[in-house]
Write a protein that binds this DNA or RNA. Structure first.
Lengths: 334, 334
DNA sequence: CCTTGTCATGCAAACGTTTGCAGAGAACCA
DNA sequence: TGGTTCTCTGCAAACGTTTGCATGACAAGG
């Protein structure tokens, strides 16, 4: 910014060719070590920084990746964003972040606008229909996270086994009536988790009810809390920690004790211990998953779309303070 | 991506000059309307998207701004980030996001690395020393948010008047012993808020104590909660909602009732009603502040640093459920 | 019919890099 | 000494735009 030195100026100042300066940065192995030192020292002295745009234009590589999330305010995403930043910058890439605001059309516009400007796009928890996504993945370099579309490159956080552990745990505590409180309908994670709860409940002979909170907000979950417990569920699995937290907020207002009256397990481990009692939840290694996705983007030739791949990471059940022995069904019913 | 059409190809296909195609996008007023239509239609048909890098190289304008925040996971920032996205894209700019991780050195490295690649940098809640910041602002186009450094372009969320209102409110409720629980020491907001609480308390004849939770985390605040109330404060102002929430978590564990035993007011209005009882707090118009900062970046000639400016937005006290009449000091002391 | 002016478009240079190719020495070997 | 190989560096073209200037067409005015 503000008319910075160019490679040419630096070169003439040093009495070498521009290409030599360039190579000092990109292929130092081709130069005599002391030449490299000389160039680098001069560069530092005058504050030379390579112009990324010129570089991108010349090499055809953008030096950046895009990251699209449905809702940056959802606490699940910041750690993921941070991981993406770190892995990207380790690979010499910047990241463009965009928020689709849970809106499929906006998401698609973002993909189309960003894709040509970057080396690849990390699309997290896409709200687009699978067919559309497959089409886009055929045109652009997309790596999906938490969306299982056949024929694409995707990395998935799989809650299945952790949910099985969760329901086993609840059953051991004597719970027989289980509820699942779901989030956004377009969310693959939501459908996957609901399915896992349902089939596991059936296998274990537990009564299962499903609720939905499409907006996926704290408030909406809170508003639902009375219903959930009124129908007799004593063990509830929430789509994510935000909903779990919302349910707990509702319970608190209704003087329903957690875990005395009802046990609750969240998902994502995004709220850590910011809940009282501390939330039992399902934890994922988000950093590894993000790393895998970025590797997919960077390790494949940049002139083609990504290969088909399906990489999964299992979640683990972490028990904190919101699960406890079941109470008799009618004992606390208001 | 994946060998997209260039302006030249599109031009020869249409039988016009590349410059005509270029102008159809950038200066359509110079062309005959039907020419513009023809070009735009053809562009859409072949999926032509202007290459931002080439454009940036040619114009010298990067088409992007940078955004640096200390901790993306702090709920204060996502709404700000979102606002930045929206305002930037309205101005035809993308945004590069970076997280300094509360680390001053890392922040400086980020500024130096990003500044040359963007049209300007939004530095939010900087942790750098003022002198350093002033120096950087003299070299790069920086707009600071929530950091008051003379001689720079800065927009500030000013809590002073809201804090005065808060303390008046607490006094009316009968509170005489006020505590401030601060956050990161390098944070200007923290120092400003602490100062405001201190002078207002003095003016109102209230007993004032100050605490600090340098990491600024929920856990740290929670750990401090016993101390705060043990020393007799019945009214506490927290640096931000995260800390307020942490304190409430601690109080809940200690069976200290909010607002029965202690009243608490947060700041930032970032946790909305995600707390039980709903948190009284100080709310800011973050979107407007962000907009002002971005305007600063975009409305000034891009070949110079930003003019000195100091734009402030006042916060407003929003009372929800965490403030109530003071109890006798010893009445609930354990 | 000539001049002047306006409007729409084309030409070509420039933006700051990268990189294939070529050339200059130096070093080695016979 | 002459040839060969190697190492290092320079030259120049290319990447896809934008934009100042030039040009041609056409209309209006005299």
């Amino acid at each position: 910014m503000i008319s910075r030195p160019t490679i040419t100026q630096l070169a003439s100042q040093l009495g070498v060719a521009p290409s030599t300066v360039s190579r000092a940065f990109t292929r130092p192995d081709l130069l005599r070590p002391d030449t490299v030192d000389r160039v680098l020292a001069a560069a530092k002295a005058v504050g030379y920084v390579p112009n990324n745009n010129a570089r991108a234009l010349s090499t055809g590589r953008a030096g950046a990746i895009g990251l699209i999330v449905p809702d940056i305010a959802n606490p699940f995403f910041p750690p993921l964003i941070r991981a993406a930043q770190n892995h990207a910058s380790a690979a010499g890439l910047s990241v463009f972040l965009a928020d689709s605001d849970e809106d499929a059309e906006r998401e698609e516009r973002l993909i189309i606008a960003m894709a040509p400007q970057v080396e690849g796009l990390l699309v997290v928890s896409s709200r687009l229909p699978s067919t559309r996504l497959r089409e886009l993945a055929g045109r652009y370099r997309l790596a999906l996270i938490n969306r299982d579309v056949a024929g694409t490159f995707r990395v998935l956080l799989d809650a299945t086994s952790a949910i099985r552990a969760a329901l086993n745990h609840l059953k051991e505590l004597g719970h027989t009536r289980i509820a699942y409180v779901g989030g956004p309908e377009r969310s693959w994670s939501n459908r996957q988790r609901r399915g896992a709860v349902e089939v596991t409940a059936r296998q274990l002979g537990l009564h299962f009810t499903s609720y939905g909170v499409p907006p996926g907000t704290y408030e909406a979950a809170k508003a639902l809390s009375r219903t959930v417990v009124g129908k007799g569920a004593t063990g509830v699995i929430a789509f994510d920690d935000v909903l779990a937290h919302g349910l707990m907020g509702g319970f608190a207002e209704e003087r329903i004790d957690v875990p005395g009256d009802v046990s609750i397990i969240g998902c994502d481990d995004a709220l850590a211990t910011q809940t009282f009692p501390a939330l039992s939840t399902i934890s994922f290694n988000v950093a590894d998953a993000t790393s895998a996705a970025i590797h997919g983007l960077t390790e494949h030739p940049s002139d083609a779309t990504l290969p088909t791949a399906r990489i999964t990471f299992d979640g683990t059940l972490v028990l904190r303070g919101t699960t406890g022995p079941a109470r008799e069904y009618s004992a606390f019913r208001k």
